[in-house]
Design a protein around this nucleic acid. Structure first.
Lengths: 315, 315
DNA sequence: GATGCTTACGATACCCGTAAAGATA
DNA sequence: TATCTTTACGGGTATCGTAAGCATC
């Protein structure tokens, strides 16, 4: 049994049992993979794949049984290298963060700037993606850390730590009736008030859109959403054009830059939590843990409401 | 990085950093080990051993950091083979049980007979040893299961399941005054009564001897222990010779075979628990789990007082 | 001087990749 | 026919063990 054989098996599964593609990503020949798999099957004394003649269709029962262990072995071996690198040069390496527009644009600039100053030699890569892609990136090991509001906390294969809580807010052009209402101080904006106007907000699956939909649905209201965008900048642009009023994440409103708009805080959409996630069992380099602390210093405190934080120390 | 390299590292540590001995158990040459270690160190970019010139003295800081992960990788790879074998031929293989005289002689014959009948093809090896040796055998992987009253439950690296509870009893020759007392039915034997006579019981560290000592000590009594033996058969022999009265484990008294002796149950020594233990993370073959069930069917029930039983199902 | 680790070196075996063959869709 | 896996085969390399060198005790 060889680590290479195990890696080949994992990669074959990842590429949907297409040996040719697996061989490509492993930078070797198909024939090599074929032989290695055969050897492994011979050593374990059972076939690992379902075959139709010479086609690989899926894992056999035995293959399914051992795949989790194989994955752990490979993960451990990668962690080994990570630890070694950490001990050797704790301030160098690569940190890949997958995150959404909202986080990258409004929340992360500050912690990233602090991180860059503290670890100038670390190559920090920011991958912008939608929440589902972020989850995939983290699960595949193509990103060390994922940051998003959606999806992450629901995945059992991820360790998700709460980053911060926020609420949606309503934005409107400065000369909009709602803005007057808000400025007068007697802001008792209701959900049905909002439904009076054409709405612009996030696309499905982005930045708490699901929560917005649920709120309207539970109130029995049908909002007139005239535009759904992937990010707050697009929303703000069209709100400023007078196409409607916007619903964006609170942190996405910048009083200085968004002087053409006014912000009306509302609380009926409920609280959202943005999560910082990494793959279970994935060893985070020291500076990666530091980055998480820079994002939210409280994450470190092993408070009872946050048992997942313990994973940070002993993954 | 190779599994072989990791195995070499582990074996080197096991043999107290003597490459020659490690090479022997791995059936290869010293020079090979030397090179493999060097390669691994080169790949990880750090030295794994403390050296005095050409002598290996111990693990370096880095070596200590990665050793636990290495052990887990090796263990997983062994588990892989175990699963494979289990799927292939669930009723064949090797089961090694390390246990004490008391268990081997009085408790295990019944479950072992049942096991032999159910799994005639499994090669069952019984290793008799003292509790500390049993622990070492299990930890080193030289025994799948360890059964003893002492030591096992205290080790954090073992999963210990309660086998059965028992108490000590006093034995005396049939014509001994204590036997008369017992036979008359008005048995109110006290601890100080026992101290009137020379005592024969287990050696330190065997079969609840520690609990016996504690009981006398707490009562402020100093027993006259004239002989301490490793097993109940020796104790019974000398009790029959009239050398004194004996304290043995209750299950070790056999009314049929021990007709020269009388048994006087007492309760002041308190309850002892005999444990069935295996190494954490060590995958038990299917028949090994069955054997444990044969010993104590209740172990399987995930009762709240026995959370360790869960380890049986998903180790 | 005895033990133990490292280095050198030659033979062997293993692994890899090309190419051809066989199978599937 | 096109795609994909297996088998065959030859070149290259890595591994292994013997043996010599050298440091520690």
């Amino acid at each position: 049994m060889t680590l290479l054989q195990l890696r080949i098996l994992r990669e074959t599964v990842r590429h949907e049992f297409n040996l040719s593609k697996a061989a490509d990503t492993l930078c070797t020949s198909q024939s090599g993979l074929s032989k290695h798999i055969k050897d492994l099957e011979h050593e374990l004394g059972m076939s690992l794949f379902q075959r139709h003649g010479k086609r690989l269709l899926g894992l056999s029962e035995g293959g399914q049984a051992i795949l989790p262990i194989i994955n752990r072995i490979i993960q451990d071996s990668e962690n080994l290298k990570g630890i070694a690198q950490d001990l050797r040069q704790a301030d160098q390496g690569q940190l890949t963060i997958a995150t959404t527009h909202t986080q990258a644009r409004y929340t992360l600039p500050k912690p990233i700037a602090a991180f860059k100053q503290q670890f100038p030699k670390v190559h920090l890569a920011l991958k912008q993606a939608d929440p589902n892609e972020i989850r995939e990136l983290v699960l595949a090991g193509d990103a060390d850390i994922g940051i998003a509001t959606e999806v992450l906390a629901e995945d059992a294969a991820l360790v998700s730590l709460p980053f911060y809580e926020w609420q949606h807010c309503v934005i409107a052009p400065r000369d909009h009736p709602l803005s007057q209402l808000s400025a007068s101080g007697q802001s008792v904006l209701t959900l049905s008030d909002i439904c009076q106007w054409p709405l612009i907000t996030y696309h499905d699956g982005f930045t708490g859109r699901s929560r917005i939909d649920r709120t309207f649905q539970q109130a029995g209201l049908t909002p007139d959403i005239v535009l759904s965008a992937l990010d707050a900048d697009v929303i703000k642009t069209y709100v400023a054009l007078g196409m409607g009023i916007g619903i964006i994440a609170g942190p996405a409103f910048d009083p200085e830059q968004d002087q053409r708009l006014s912000q009306i805080p509302v609380d009926f959409f409920g609280k959202n939590t943005t999560w910082i996630a990494f793959r279970k069992g994935h060893l985070l380099r020291g500076f990666a843990r530091t980055f998480i602390q820079l994002c939210n210093p409280e994450i470190l405190s092993d408070s009872p409401r946050n048992p997942a934080a313990a994973m940070l120390h002993r993954p």
